[in-house]
Design a protein around this nucleic acid. Structure first.
Lengths: 346, 346
DNA sequence: CTGTTAGCGCTTTCAT
DNA sequence: ATGAAAGCGCTAACAG
């Protein structure tokens, strides 16, 4: 920077101002500086700037896994918004493990993010303590924690599945099962199952039928295995909700292989509204939570919270509930065989 | 840090050493320092450390999009490896645009990454210049550029599709089409198409039949639209290769809807070996390039290159070719209807 | 094994 | 509108 300053015949400070574009520099000086920058191939060092200004320009985002279209959609939404303020998103993956989340938080804090977005509302005590002590805005997403750390942008996983159950009951299904992950920690999956169980009680259905397979996040193949197990265990079941669209898809494909009509022999629903749910044959009934929009909303709130904090008036904890939509498609239709065209684009 | 030092009765330097764990600190002192750290809730500031040591601990990775299981797998592989050395991956998305790539590179360089991984081998001249001038190891992936910037971990997209074509021809298919994206810049897609065209020439097939739809990256729905267009345009076509597994899946589902047997009426192959390709009914013939392993290999090479650079002996440009595998499944089998079980787990 | 000194490259603050 | 001085929090380098 000193080199640029010398070449442009100004002080380093003026170069700094010119590069930040605060407009407090004469157009001619500005031009001369940019010229020098170009000639020297100078690139601003934000690490140094961060140290000095105490603003790193980082926002940390913790998600269970990148290989999940749902969470990467949320991250995309966040980036969409944070990019406008030149904030860099630091992505950390926790592998569906609270212990790993704790470790990732510790590492992230060393980068002094100006805000932190986490997935879920359940953390180890130490993780929670670190997040609280960080002194920056924290947003918990994808859930609706009873005692939030700070802000929340989420929805009730249980409620979405209760809604879905109500719809299925409305369509005449009474013997409804639930497919979920076997091993591992998946709070959102557990909430969904709780919603299923509550609905079974509320609608006075005969019983709960839960098949647990694989390790979270459960795969398409797990869904395929589960549906076989389901039909063998409870042949009378008429419909099944899978904890996400992946296994729902796997289950449907397995039914095709075995010649079990969907929804004729068994109606199948998922969660998440993946692209594949709309394109599958039959198209899959699911719950859409607008993952990308969730990310955008978290991004906007984060920017607001960060600005408020620097303005000396920190935002009081906000709780944003994102809407979910039931997307009823062919996989749960009350028909003997899947249709050809109708409902293809739901 | 000074606070910690005072409380532990040592100098800041000793605290720094203790925290880095170089082992040059007495166990007792170490314990006293960690105690003080815990009591004060002190968190190391890596930004400051980076400025001082000139090692940021960042490696930048540029990918077209996070919402593509293929690239996020590669990123996961990279993180797997870089995490072991406490390197933080900075992810940048370019949205399949060279112009955006250039902009993202410029932003990334301000963070002084110790290495840069980019997707593809074609960049704007300025992007290329910046990468070269950055003075850190650069790895181009997912392609096999003729004139690499530095290192390469990739494969020939054209060759993979040529192999796939050879296999289809071997299986007796002669009228083979190709489905690709319409608008947008997708170098790897173009390479694959080039491979298709070369194969058409080599095997003296009658003609090339290319259907271009949508905007890159093309969706499942684009694949569905394309297959209809294909059958309408060239009803005599017996097999089609899609530029990726997504549209191949969409095409197959559309065939189901219309009652066109796959592979009976039309054989369909994809690229990428997504989870969905194995689980689909019929299972999809595809090319596997081991995206996650590609990421791991890039990660290892990056660590080596970074170490070599600090050792004063920069690695001379390396070219790693990752193997690809043809995964022949039911969607191209020479049978009238899809099988029930065989080949399900290819 | 531990401490001292200097300085990384920038921005804040205050002055002009 | 621009400059000078000081310092952000840490670590390299050297000394002891």
């Amino acid at each position: 920077m000193a080199d640029v300053a010398r070449r442009a015949g100004v002080s380093a400070m003026t170069v700094s101002r010119a590069l930040k574009g605060t407009g407090t520099v004469t157009p001619e000086t500005q031009a001369r500086i940019l010229q020098a920058v170009a000639e020297l191939g100078y690139v601003l060092d934000k690490s140094a700037g961060a140290l000095s200004s105490k603003k790193t320009g980082f926002v940390s985002v913790l998600i269970p896994s990148l290989n999940n279209s749902t969470f990467s959609d949320t991250v995309h939404g966040l980036i969409d918004v944070l990019d406008t303020q030149a904030m860099q998103v630091l992505i950390g993956t926790t592998g569906y493990s609270r212990a790993r989340e704790e470790a990732v938080i510790e590492t992230m804090l060393q980068r002094r993010p100006e805000g932190i977005v986490v997935t879920g509302g359940r953390h180890t005590p130490r993780a929670r303590a670190m997040l609280t002590a960080a002194g920056v805005p924290v947003i918990e997403t994808w859930e609706q924690p009873a005692a939030p750390i700070d802000h929340v942008v989420g929805f009730s996983n249980a409620a979405t599945v209760e809604d879905l159950m109500a719809r299925l009951v409305d369509r005449g299904y009474r013997r409804i099962a639930f497919i979920e992950g076997g091993e591992g920690d998946d709070p959102r999956g557990e909430d969904r199952r709780a919603g299923y169980e509550r609905a079974v009680a509320r609608h006075r259905l005969e019983r709960t039928c839960v098949i647990a397979v694989g390790r979270v996040p459960i795969s398409m193949e797990d869904g395929a295995r589960a549906v076989v197990q389901l039909v063998e265990t409870w042949p009378e079941v008429e419909a099944v909700i899978c904890v996400s669209d992946g296994p729902a898809f796997g289950a449907i494909m397995e039914c095709h292989r075995r010649g079990w009509a969907v929804p004729g022999r068994l109606a199948i629903a998922g969660f998440g509204d993946f692209e594949l749910a709309r394109q599958c044959w039959p198209s899959i009934t699911t719950v859409s939570v607008g993952s990308r929009d969730l990310g955008r909303q978290a991004g906007s709130l984060m920017l607001e919270a960060i600005a408020a904090r620097y303005a000396g008036a920190p935002l009081s904890p906000r709780r944003v509930t994102v809407a979910h939509t039931l997307v009823e498609r062919d996989s749960t239709a009350r028909r003997a065989s899947p249709p050809t065209w109708a409902g293809r684009v739901a």
